[in-house]
């Protein structure tokens, strides 16, 4: 069986890093990297790699809908709102890496299988991808009353979009902790650290639980770290989880794969890696669907 065709819209940092990751996929075939600036570094690199390119934005898919069944959108929230409508009309599945949140929030470590009826999913935030799986795992065994996360990233890895609207990060991540993580109440903090050489992304997760069971919680955390490591190999516990009364503290560190971003930018890496995994899960579903109809 062949691979499922995919395209990426947005040839900036995120789109380009995602491109490198997708080249290694067993189930997705990247046909086209789509940008709006023919001179962009991303499009230039795609050409060198022999991948199709277009500088026509979403029109590239409107004109040639056969280039992709799954479209990854790495543009901006504002642009994705428009794209979401177009892609739905074309019957494409959209994996949204912007903060637009047209579709439901998704973490591939938690929702490994999404119904094909859901044709647009949102990747939340980098801090959300790093921490929500842990909150979910703890919530499964201990019922999380309150989850608070602190994402610390190197200044160099925070792009102008994040900086111009940092509230979007804290508010979206908080919602993700509640909706996907299952915490009754969430709170997210983000800190930029300018140290040189740049620091790796670090995330601290605090959970207040209703049913404290150290053994079960420790196991749930260990298992979840393994699950995330399947698609983010540089994801790890920085310290053994700490327990104090009804509070669990988990220290995480995310080292990027160094595809397009340097290794310190684990925050960007975990976004593209998670999006790819979500797309791959869709691809597996799509292939099963095709297989069934052929029967």
């Amino acid at each position: 069986m062949g691979k499922v065709k995919a395209a990426i819209i947005g040839s900036g940092n995120i789109g380009t890093d995602l491109m490198y990751k997708m080249l290694r996929s067993d189930v997705l075939e990247l046909t086209t990297l789509i940008g709006i600036d023919p001179e962009s570094d991303g499009l230039r690199r795609a050409k060198e790699l022999g991948i199709g390119t277009s500088a026509d934005g979403i029109d590239a898919i409107v004109k040639n809908p056969e280039i992709a069944d799954i479209v990854f959108d790495a543009t901006s929230a504002k642009t994705h709102v428009r794209h979401a409508k177009v892609l739905r009309e074309l019957g494409k599945i959209a994996v949204d890496l912007t903060p637009a949140a047209r579709g439901p929030f998704v973490s591939p470590a938690i929702q490994s299988d999404i119904s094909l009826d859901v044709d647009n999913v949102n990747m939340i935030t980098c801090g959300g991808q790093a921490t929500i799986p842990i909150v979910y795992a703890i919530n499964e065994v201990a019922d999380v009353r309150y989850a608070e996360i602190v994402a610390t990233i190197s200044s160099k890895s925070a792009g102008p979009g994040t900086r111009a609207n940092i509230d979007e990060f804290t508010i979206t991540t908080k919602r993700g902790l509640e909706i996907v993580g299952g915490a009754d109440r969430g709170k997210a903090l983000i800190i930029l650290n300018p140290a040189e050489p740049p620091i790796l992304m670090r995330d601290t997760v605090y959970c207040e639980v209703k049913q404290m069971d150290e053994e079960k919680i420790r196991q749930a955390i260990t298992d979840m770290v393994e699950t995330v490591r399947q698609y983010v190999p540089g994801y790890r516990l920085k310290q053994e989880p700490m327990f104090e009364e009804n509070k669990v503290t988990v220290f995480l560190e995310v080292e990027g794969a160094g595809d397009y971003f340097p290794a310190y930018a684990g925050n960007l890496d975990i976004m593209t890696a998670a999006a790819l995994r979500v797309g791959e899960n869709y691809a597996v579903r799509l292939k099963e669907g095709k297989y069934e109809t052929q029967q």
Binding site: T152, N193, P194, A195, T204, K238, Q239, M242, F251
Partner: peptide
């Protein structure tokens, strides 16, 4: 030495444990 900035209180426990 690790150039912690304001707000990084979580590093205190981490560094202490280390």
């Amino acid at each position: 030495r690790r150039k912690a900035v304001g707000g990084q209180e979580d590093m205190i426990l981490d560094v202490a444990a280390e």
